[in-house]
Computed example of a mutant assay.
Amino acid sequence: MSALLDQPLLWLVVTLGAYRLGLWLRDRTGAHPLAQPVLVAIVLVATLVVLTDVDYASYADDTALITFVLGPATVALAVPLHRQLARLRGFVLPLLTAVTAGAVVSVTAAVGLVRLLGGDELLARSMAPKATTTPVAIAVSDTLGGLPPLTAAVTITAGILGAVAGPSVLSLLRIHDHRARGLAVGSASHGIGTGRMIVDHPVEGAFSGLAMGLTALATSLVAPLLVALML
């Protein structure tokens, strides 16, 4: 068993296999909200890592290739947006206003809720950038004096919750415009939510990807100012 766990490609194969199983479950269940490939992969891989007592640093080294391709994959989200450029006409100003307002509300609500519930300043600084994509959230957290590993965990959790519940909540609120739905999920749940929206509808996926990028920019700009004012 020890020799098997020391194989350099083991955890890369396990992670990709877990994600592929998640895709299979999503297709078999008719895209059930809980059958999100990322969620399935996280549960399976985390369980195996704990059961085999593998050091996280070793796992991270073995799966460095996946981390590397996240950058190009994020950039590739511009492709579906390019196909929907015509739908941006007359929507640019509302879009920018909504994304900026969303970033302000997200940071303010995160910091305010932590303080209201008695959390310390370190936790508040770590929670502030939770709505943006994980690499940006980690960088912003470090700038704010937060705890980047905690920020990463909270950010991924927010993404999963948005992917699972976001579309259903929007439907309950009777929000059916595909642009607005994509914008909402992308602003709150970054890449994980965008992955769900791409499957649901091409327009929703395109606008979710755009919202993810703009939210990362807006949060980077407003978070330091808002945290300084509130803390």
Rank of each mutant, 00 (worst) to 15 (best):
A18K: 04
T97A: 15
V45A: 05
G17I: 09
S187E: 05
H82K: 13
T155D: 03
V43T: 11
V75H: 04
M212L: 15
L51S: 11
A3S: 13
V79S: 09
D62V: 00
A124K: 01
A60T: 05
P167G: 00
L172E: 01
L210W: 10
A124H: 01
S187V: 09
R196K: 12
A57W: 01
D55N: 08
R115S: 13
G195C: 00
I66S: 04
H178N: 12
S168K: 08
V14M: 06
A31W: 07
M127V: 04
G145N: 03
D62Q: 15
V105W: 11
T134Q: 02
R179L: 13
R83T: 04
L48H: 10
L10T: 03
A139E: 12
T219M: 09
A228H: 14
L70Y: 02
T194I: 06
V111G: 12
R196Y: 07
G166M: 02
V222M: 00
E204C: 15
G191P: 03
P202G: 07
L39K: 08
A131S: 15
A18G: 07
A152F: 02
R115E: 14
A60V: 06
K130T: 01
V49H: 02
L173F: 12
G209W: 09
V227R: 09
A73T: 11
L95I: 02
L217I: 11
H32L: 06
L123T: 13
P94A: 11
A188L: 14
V169T: 10
S208F: 04
I42S: 01
R115V: 12
D177V: 06
V154G: 00
R181G: 10
A124S: 07
L210P: 05
G195K: 02
A228G: 02
P72N: 03
P135V: 07
R28T: 12
T133Y: 01
Q84V: 06
A86T: 13
A86Q: 13
I160G: 07
V13I: 15
V13R: 04
L231E: 06
A18Q: 04
A158C: 13
A78V: 14
L85K: 14
I175N: 01
S171L: 13
L225V: 14
L96T: 04
L95Y: 14
G17A: 14
P94H: 08
Q7L: 15
I160S: 03
G159K: 00
T194E: 06
L70M: 10
L113A: 15
D6C: 05
D61I: 09
R83Y: 05
G159A: 00
L16T: 00
A188W: 08
A78I: 13
Q7R: 11
V105C: 09
V136A: 11
L12C: 06
M197L: 14
T67A: 14
A35L: 03
L12D: 06
T143P: 00
G146T: 08
M212I: 07
A78G: 13
V14A: 10
T67F: 07
